[in-house]
């Protein structure tokens, strides 16, 4: 399904060279997202296989999220430890801002 990436790239190129302003396209994006999630909701609600397995689905989602959060935290921490020595001490005081 290279078509997905081709469409995304086409959008970036057209967006870059277009004179059209950003705000209108953001409205369009949010309305499309509402529509598609509404349709996804209908598919989920009318699908008995999902409705009857909703607990398993919830637990699986929780496990995946836990993995994603722990993994990304660990890697971001590693980068932070690598970067921090060169960062001046003073930014410890800026935290309350």
């Amino acid at each position: 399904m290279l078509i997905v990436l081709a469409i995304l790239l086409a959008g970036i190129l057209v967006g870059y060279f277009s004179k059209w302003r950003l705000r209108r396209i953001d409205r369009l994006i949010i309305v499309i997202i509402w529509t598609l999630l509404f349709v996804l909701g209908i598919e989920v609600g009318s699908n008995e296989a999902i409705v009857s397995r909703i607990r398993t689905i919830g637990v699986d989602a929780l496990i995946v999220t836990t993995g994603a959060v722990v993994g990304s935290t660990a890697f971001a921490w590693a980068l932070w430890m690598f970067i921090r020595p060169r960062t001046p001490r003073q930014d410890a005081y800026k935290q309350e801002g």
């Binding site: 078509i3 997905v4 469409i7 995304l8 967006g15 302003r21 950003l22 396209i25 994006i29 499309i32």
Partner: peptide, 20 residues
């Protein structure tokens, strides 16, 4: 219809990245 709507969404997401 949902597939084509999805394509419009992807194009719009790309547009907003390139446009800013």
């Amino acid at each position: 219809a949902t597939t084509y709507t999805l394509y419009v969404l992807l194009f719009s997401v790309g547009f907003s990245i390139g446009n800013d």
